[in-house]
Nucleic acid binder design. Structure first.
Lengths: 305, 305
DNA sequence: CGTCAACTTGAAGGTTATCAAGGCATGTGG
DNA sequence: CCACATGCCTTGATAACCTTCAAGTTGACG
């Protein structure tokens, strides 16, 4: 809310400018898009699996989520969407939606007709590319999400989630001092992380006890971003990796963070501490890549003091 | 192998034609792409997390996988890629790779320079859209994968996986009578499904015991696709869904399969049996949506007798 | 002051991981 | 042709992690 109305710009422009600065012409073209703005109250579905929307939408304010239901009636939340996101941008090319999107908090939502977007894309090639890129970034987030759920246990999973969320919020300027609104209930968190509510509750308490996060009245603060309390780098031992013995470097991820990449983001780089702590290795790395291929994603956000 | 060499066409053309028929001009443009074909042996990385490739590649034959490594050295496989796939197409717009891609079997791989692809996209708008769509389909697969790992337990997870794999293979014409090659070890399966090897082994045996699949010497057959052994539709009861009580229709997925969609795919439609059986509800539904928005994805494959 | 949603806690049981060992096929060199 | 190694699959026992059930607490709000 606050930060958003402060900068009174078109959410789409803000979003795209986290990638590259727009030309006047491009900006004008976006501002010319007919937008149908609405407020949708909390806990409502905006679109549903199986719909064939003729328009997409931007979230101008609030938090929404994309989810699927299992045949058994279990819900899996796939992503939380914040200001500037276009959660169903894919429907521009994929007619039938494979996900539902619902609000978490009340949301200000701007609907844009597909035809208008299509026309914009035809005329402004760079904008088209930026939108494509946007969908690719979502895909990268999904990959991160899979890895988190598939290969980390509850504590690390929650820690990772918090980091990821705050990095994303930061890119939209919603973070100050590693601190942001997190208007998401534990039930919703559990559906996002593939855990039970009860266990999420316990894990969050554990994170608090470890002095890693502060989470109260829907406000999240990451206390130990840099991983000052590292519990030894010992886990980073080759012997840990039983799998894939033929591979040249099983712990490839470590190697993948080149010095160049490291240097570019020093202030935000989490340390190489093991799963149990915040500041998890993979997070920024992937998100950063995903976001901009480059530094722009992170560095376009206001610097953390 | 067999089926691929039989139809001796450009893998990219075959792939794109699962979406819509190409014009002669488009076909010519694709055939004119300079491609660097190579054979890469099994269990080798093709590209790695952190790389900044200047080219993408098509898999002309064989199976590869996209994966990430955790800080702890655990591997999560995100997708298996078969003939016709372009696993790192995203690198066309996202400079730094957030995943590694390695071969499972020996692969015939065709590398295409980004500049050439870019030029193709500029000149053939429909091809550009098709490629964009291709990346969107991958994203839909990732979403399906998240749901599978996050909200299903081992047996259903494995069942779902088998269905998904065979549907994908089928779209490339690699399936006959619900039967295809599955040259993937249990270890690799475990990294894909977020389980331990031991447990994957047990779950596969369970599926065999239930008479749902046949899996030996790297050949998979789905025996009970239609779910003839349904164990009552009883799970489809509203009371099952404790979560999200405010939502209008919690079991939205059911409703989402409209009659129209149903009719279009009757022969392949899995029944609405619970998690424990193959022919899991979500699979075709999402994949189908993801794939074509329409029927084309599935129906372009040779019909199952 | 009562209600409701969200959060919290304890106890019990189920699913899945881990450890350890054995089996079976394939391939290689002597 | 046999000994040996290697990769993959299999099995049993034990323990850890997480879910479920059941109940209680807290805070916001009318």
């Amino acid at each position: 809310m606050s930060a958003i109305n402060a900068r009174n710009t078109h959410p789409l422009i803000r979003k795209l400018e986290t990638v590259f600065p727009l030309s006047d012409e491009e900006r004008k073209a976006i501002l010319a898009l007919p937008i149908d703005q609405r407020v949708i109250e909390a806990h409502q579905d905006i679109v549903r699996e199986g719909d064939r929307p003729s328009r997409s939408f931007v979230i101008a304010d609030g938090v929404a989520c994309a989810f699927k239901m299992t045949g058994e009636g279990k819900r899996q939340i796939l992503a939380f969407h914040i200001t500037g996101d276009m959660p169903d941008l894919q429907s521009l090319h994929l007619q039938t939606l494979d996900i539902s999107i619902g609000t978490i908090t009340a949301c200000k939502v701007g609907f844009i007709q597909h035809e208008d977007l299509q026309r914009l894309c035809e005329r402004q090639a760079r904008v088209a590319a930026a939108l494509w890129r946007e969908t690719l970034i979502y895909a990268a987030m999904f990959r991160e999400w899979i890895t988190n759920i598939g290969r980390r246990q509850a504590l690390g999973r929650a820690a990772h989630f918090m980091c990821e969320y705050i990095v994303r919020a930061r890119a939209m300027g919603l973070v100050e001092d590693y601190s942001c609104e997190l208007p998401i209930t534990q039930e919703e968190l559990s559906d996002a992380m593939g855990l039970s509510i009860v266990h999420v509750n316990r894990v969050l308490q554990e994170l608090r006890k470890l002095g890693l996060i502060n989470l109260e009245s829907r406000h999240l603060t990451v206390l130990d971003w840099t991983g000052s309390r590292k519990s030894e780098t010992s886990t980073r031992d080759t012997s840990t990796c039983r799998r894939r013995p033929r591979s040249v470097t099983p712990l490839r991820q470590t190697a993948a963070r080149t010095d160049e990449q490291r240097a570019a983001h020093e202030p935000l780089r989490p340390s190489a501490i093991p799963e149990t702590a915040l500041g998890q290795v993979g997070i920024l790395h992937s998100l950063k890549n995903a976001a901009a291929g480059e530094s722009s994603f992170v560095s376009s956000a206001p610097p953390i003091s």
